[in-house]
């Protein structure tokens, strides 16, 4: 492999905490690796387990649920 492995991570973020935290990281200009793609939810408890499994099945390298 010539390129280093860069995972694609789906992030389910709660609108009220983790997503707000993501915004705050931006306001504070905290730098982090660009591998996560955020899907905003109204609560981390909204994420159906099937959705996580589907995502992984379809080839996404990681799923992170934050809330």
């Amino acid at each position: 492999m010539s390129k280093t492995f860069e995972p694609v991570i789906a992030g389910f973020l709660c609108n009220w905490c983790a997503y707000a935290g993501g915004d705050l990281a931006g306001v504070s200009r905290l730098q982090y690796p660009p591998n996560m793609r955020v899907i905003r939810t109204m609560c981390s408890g909204m994420v159906h387990p099937n959705l996580v499994v589907e995502a992984l099945q379809r080839g996404i390298d990681g799923v992170i649920v934050m809330g």
Binding site: G22, D23, A25, G26, V27, R29, L30, Q31, Y32, P34, V38
Partner: peptide, 13 residues
Amino acid sequence: NIRNQNSWVHQKD
């Protein structure tokens, strides 16, 4: 959200 969760946090890349 391409500012708070993108341009501001990946300024070098």
